[in-house]
């Protein structure tokens, strides 16, 4: 499942997509993210029959990820994002 967390408003689209089929909940992105955007949960909230751990975007961060992710996304010379770098399974992608 591709879970898109985030929002769209007048200023643009801000979604973090998590490929839950690839994610094993190792939590490396949780350690890497300076803003605490991710967390590991024991079961997928959107799939009651999956019981393996995986990451989700923290509920309180979903409506402000544009700002939470802002520091990692300077307008010029953007370095690789720490969450994407840290993930061994290529689970995370950003829409902006």
């Amino acid at each position: 499942m591709i879970a898109n967390y985030g929002y769209k408003d007048g200023s643009g689209d801000y979604f973090i997509a998590i490929d839950t089929d690839k994610c094993d909940g190792c939590g490396k992105c949780v350690e890497a993210c300076p803003a605490g955007v991710f967390e590991v949960v024991d079961e997928d909230p959107n799939d009651p029959f999956r019981e393996e751990p995986l990451i989700i975007v923290v509920v309180d961060k979903r409506k402000k990820i544009k700002y939470e992710c802002g520091p990692c996304k300077p307008p010029t010379n953007r370095p690789p994002l720490p969450c994407i770098e840290a993930c061994p399974q290529d689970v995370i992608s950003h829409s902006w």
Binding site: I2, N4, Y7, D9, N46, D47, K63
Partner: peptide, 12 residues
């Protein structure tokens, strides 16, 4: 009926 991709907008 299993979800394969979803998106929710509840900010606006």
């Amino acid at each position: 009926g299993k979800v394969v991709n979803f998106l929710m907008n509840d900010k606006c």
